[in-house]
Amino acid sequence: MNGAKIFYEIFNFIWFPFSVILASGKPKRTIDRLFDQLYEIGIESLPLIFVTSVFLGLVITIQTYYQISGMLPKYFLGLTVGRMVMIELAPVLSGLVITGRSVSAMAAEIGSMKITEQLDALRVMKIDPKYFLAQPRLLAVVIITPILNGVMLLVTLLIGAIYAQLFYHTDLSVFFYGLTHPFAPRIFWVSFIKSTIFGFWCGASGLYYGFKVEGGTKEVGKAVTNAIVTATVLILVLDFLVALIFF
């Protein structure tokens, strides 16, 4: 690939989700499909979010306690765990869970529809596949990702607090004091803004590679891999950009 081609690819990728949002059709139908997708993506991701959160809560509490015990007051446990989880771990990991669970599925589903000419069939019927297939999916991921981020925050911190109470004799109130002092609302909303951005670009990756499939089943497999790799890299790069901007 030469430079111009790479530039063209990147431009296409960046423009893609916006073209999806601009695609038009009957709005009422989009809303019906949006609810289907919300349900599907939300329900299929929740178990994995729970498992990830529980173990994240345990590990991060153990590691933090190990670093600070004997040096800093106990409420630092809540403070450090809380900030790490809110700013970094919950948005990044919930983004990765969505990528593994739903973004991959989207690329596979749309890609299969493409090779079986279902997208062509839509076009012939004057239904824009971007409006019909991509729009509700993109909107659904953008809505679901921050919600899952919130679930992850709650579960992780709760598990952390309980573990600290049981094994480190750190009272729940001390842990929560650390969480909220000094209270910094910015940290809270940065967490949600971040996961919304992740949701948008991860969803875009899945849909973009799905729509791009040409050929047969092997290409569908490749599209899934490309979607996951792109979404994962994007999460890390965007995470860095947000850190640059907000901190």
Partner: peptide, 28 residues
Amino acid sequence: SLGCVFQHAALFDSLTVEENIVLPLLET
């Protein structure tokens, strides 16, 4: 206006027969 019958039918596999047939009317 054109109607197309694709070589491999190109039905929407996730939908029922009824949903497939009425889709163009519902959407357009």
